[in-house]
Design a binder for these strands. Structure first.
Length: 805
RNA sequence: GCCCGGGUGGCGAAAGUGGUAGACGCAAGGGACUUAAAAUCCCUUGGGGGCAACCCCAUGCAGGUUCGAGUCCUGCCCCGGGCACCA
């Protein structure tokens, strides 16, 4: 009969959260840590709705890992902050008609309260927000470093434009080619925008991936995004001598190139258009432009295009092939021009069929017959290709490029899908790009001593029809003297992309108290690169790629000593609701507050982790939560009972299970298999209860193992079991003894012809002869052996024996 | 279309290198305690057959390798996520 008091999670949890704050439990020594461990999780964007279950799932998983490492004896630094700039905040602010500068602090307050309540091991001394001038001063500084290194440049690029709202739209604000607010069809506009030369680093970004300990899924996403392809640039020449350079990954098929297609924006279009085609070409260019940036890509794949009225010479065949423009060729990739091989490319085939262009087969694939078959495989043999006939595609391609290179009309070439990073946003809610335009000096960087360029607190932050940021209306702010020559200048009015804010926040955390430097060299040496990064694959490409790029640049400039910020990264799974991603529009977003109130943070944390494998995610259903709560109550009672008893050595069966459990939980926690670690602890509790109850020596290790998962409860029970005033997180993770974990008896499966027929309970280490003899003596086995001679015996020590007859 | 994950009981899920499928939990059914209910505790629970001890069938589908396949190989189907006219 237990005399344990009632488990009241609210009371226990608030009490321990207070103590953690008072005693600075979660604040490691940053300057002289013995064993630094930087435990990073992806900082949230503080939405008005508050932290949702998806955030909590991610943070809990990362927090368990941090707490586990702390119990291993590391000085764990687990910071948190807020990614509070950006279009989401701004759109919400527009919707409610309040300046985001007023809204964001409120949202952050809510998040801070929720993050404390769930029991994260956060070092709040080092909280940061990207909207804090003390932070974005250094975001602007970062821009200046790239500018000075000639890695930032300005270029005209298309943006989405809503003609009714007269504003620039982000891609995510365009729904089916229409403005998400007013449903007006969106157009393209060309604006001068700032870009970072991330493509200069494409090869390094790709190659380094092989050295990183990352989730396979994240690596794959990043490799695809960088999108390396090998091919060649080939030159087609017009009778007038104009060279049209195309990029192809299949130079082996050049003999089948029966026409050329340029992107409608290609600079040569004007010069290549014959007089009689002028009107049609203009009309087509206008039509393409009238579509938004998104529709150009995801629109129907019906091929459209116009003949320019001119021809160019195929460098391989010497024949004149017609030159077209079509929107299926993109200016941003390759050279903006392609040679079309309709016999072996689906898109070219569709286009050629539609416009009656010739199709010539140049690859024969074994087993495939017929000239009209568009085969894109590489394991074919060349045909209709002059002296290259009969060569395998790969080999033939190489020789054709070499041959064309001799004539100066071919070069091997590697292409990346990755584009330069456009960081300009014609918006209000971001860090102003620190550039001043001067008529005499051109674009002049704001001197570092003048940073930050403060975002002015303006009344009307609505984007307007000028196509420039609302900041342009703030004349006091906008008009400044040129830092070079002092003549009247104008500020850059675009702000930078939020991804720039988040591309370096991990460098800032250990150094938040330094106002005069972005990151302190000594602190950075101690704490970086990040020891463990846990986050979702929604950031697999943009954030994780930009952070790597920025770190490479900082390394080159001597600001940091490493070029990969996250040597170890694990992607967690997605929490879905009723089989679908949670989103405001679906109305299936789960807010954790009510669950924490009803069940307590410890129960809710464990429930989220018990739902399924952390790295796979799962469907949120609240039915199972009661099982976790029951488990914690059992632990509560066991600990209270044990606290009142003499500390006896547990019975053998309990001791064995204990050591097996420590082994299992240690391994599973280290590999983020939290669901099975929890199951193992449940099994152990079941065994303890079967043996009546536990003593201190059998319950204390359980409390330690539970601590990362249910930190408040563990603290409470640890102090009850003699921990005194010390936090359980000052203790060490329990060790297991392999000998004690080994079972005395084992169950050996007996199979006849691979089918299970009996099980034998035997002492560990029984010999094959003994096992076979005992197996043959078993009535059930005898029946199936049926007097036949044994043809073969398969014996696996302490596991099974298979008798083959 | 391409690239990643997945498909196992009523449900969430377990099964180091091929070796006793379904641990752990939920739900459900039965029982104990109770005036009663809740809570708690005990038992049952993949499907089928048999009074039984046992037997047969079962890890998306179809083949294959093996003494033995949820696990490996080949070809499909379905679901989730990412990219998407990238030449």
């Amino acid at each position: 009969m237990s005399h344990a008091p009632v488990y009241d999670p609210q009371e226990v949890e608030t009490r321990w959260q207070q103590r953690w704050t008072e005693r600075h439990t979660n604040e490691p020594e940053l300057d002289r840590p013995a064993r630094p461990f930087y435990n990073l999780m992806m900082f949230p964007y503080p939405s008005a709705e508050g932290l949702h279950v998806g955030n909590m799932f991610a943070f809990t998983g990362a927090d368990i890992y941090g707490r586990f490492q702390r119990l291993q004896g590391y000085d764990v630094f687990e910071p948190i902050g807020f990614d509070a700039f950006g279009i989401h905040s701004e759109n919400y602010a527009l919707a409610v008609g309040t300046n985001p500068a007023q809204l964001i602090p409120r949202n952050i307050d809510t998040f801070r309260r929720q993050l404390r309540r769930f029991g994260g091991m956060f070092d709040w001394r080092h909280e940061l927000s990207t909207t804090d001038p003390a932070y974005y001063k250094w975001t602007q500084w970062l821009f200046l470093q790239l500018f000075k290194a000639n890695l930032a440049y300005k270029k005209r690029a298309a943006v989405n434009w809503c003609p009714k709202d007269k504003t620039v739209l982000a891609n995510e604000q365009v729904i089916n080619g229409r403005c998400e607010r007013c449903d007006t069809p969106v157009e393209q506009r060309s604006l001068d925008q700032w870009f970072f030369r991330i493509t200069d680093y494409a090869e390094r970004l790709l190659r380094n991936l092989d050295t990183l300990d990352w989730s396979e899924s994240t690596l794959a996403l990043q490799r695809n995004w960088i999108g390396r392809s090998e091919g060649a640039e080939l030159v087609f020449t017009t009778p007038a001598g104009q060279a049209i350079t195309v990029f192809t990954t299949r130079p082996d098929t050049v003999f089948g190139a029966t026409y050329l297609v340029l992107a409608p924006e290609h600079p040569l279009v004007e010069a290549l258009t014959a007089g009689e085609q002028r009107a049609a070409v203009r009309a087509y260019q206008r039509e393409v432009q009238s579509r938004d940036v998104v529709a150009r890509r995801v629109g129907e794949k019906v091929k459209t295009g116009v003949f320019l009225g001119s021809y160019a010479r195929n460098p391989a065949t010497g024949e004149a092939v017609p030159v077209w423009i079509a929107d299926y060729v993109l200016m941003e990739y390759g050279t903006g021009a392609i040679m079309a091989v309709p016999a072996h490319d689906e898109r070219d085939h569709a286009f050629a069929t539609q416009f009656g262009l010739p199709i010539r087969q140049v690859v024969q694939v074994e087993g495939e017959q017929g000239a009209a078959l568009p085969s894109v495989t590489e394991d074919g043999v060349l045909m209709n290709s002059g002296r290259f006939d009969g060569l395998a595609c790969r080999e033939g391609g190489k020789r054709i490029v070499a041959w064309l290179a001799e004539q100066q009309v071919g070069t091997p070439r590697v292409q990346y899908r990755l584009h330069d990073w456009c960081i300009s946003r014609q918006r209000y809610w971001g860090p102003p790009i620190p550039i001043i335009y001067c008529d005499r000096c051109g674009p002049v960087p704001v001197p570092e001593r003048d940073l930050p360029v403060l975002l002015p607190p303006i009344e009307d932050f609505r984007p307007d029809d000028s196509g420039v940021s609302p900041l342009a209306r703030h004349t006091e702010w906008y008009n400044v003297p040129c830092p070079h020559c002092g003549s009247p200048g104008r500020r850059e009015t675009d702000v930078s992309d939020t991804f720039l804010d988040s591309s370096w926040y991990f460098l800032r955390y250990p150094s938040t108290e330094f106002a005069d430097r972005p990151f302190d060299p000594a602190r950075t040496r101690t704490w970086l690169p990040v020891t463990s990064y846990i986050g979702g694959n929604e950031h697999a490409v943009l954030h994780l790629l930009y952070s790597r790029f920025i770190t490479m640049v900082l390394k080159e400039q001597g600001h940091v000593a490493f070029e990969e910020p996250f040597p170890k990264l694990r992607a967690h799974g997605l929490i879905v609701k009723d089989g679908a991603k949670m989103s405001k529009s679906r109305g299936n977003v789960v807010i954790p507050d009510a669950y924490i109130k009803q069940w307590g943070a410890d129960t809710f944390r464990m429930y989220l982790m018990f739902l399924g494998p952390f790295q796979e995610g799962g469907d949120f259903r609240d039915e199972g939560i009661t099982g976790v709560r029951r488990f914690l109550e059992k632990v509560w009672v066991l600990a209270h009972d044990a606290a009142g008893q003499a500390d006896a050595r547990p019975p053998e069966a309990v001791e064995r299970k204990l050591h097996q459990t420590i082994r299992k939980v240690t391994g599973d926690t280290a590999t983020l298999n939290y669901n099975t670690a929890i199951a193992a602890m449940m099994e152990y509790v079941n065994v303890l209860r079967e043996h009546g109850a536990g003593s201190g020596s059998s319950v204390r290790p359980l409390v330690l193992m539970l601590a990362p998962y249910a930190p408040h409860l563990a603290e409470e029970l640890w102090s009850l079991l003699g921990g005194g005033d010390r936090s359980v997180f000052e203790e060490r993770w329990p060790a297991y003894d392999e000998g004690l974990a080994q079972a005395g008896d084992v169950e050996i499966a007996v199979q006849v012809n691979g089918k299970l027929r009996a099980r034998l309970q035997l002492p560990r280490g029984a010999s094959q002869d003994d096992v076979v003899a005992l197996a043959l003596a078993d009535a059930g086995v005898k029946k199936f052996v049926d007097g036949n001679p044994l043809r073969k015996i398969v014996y696996v020590q302490d596991r099974l024996v298979n008798l083959v007859v």
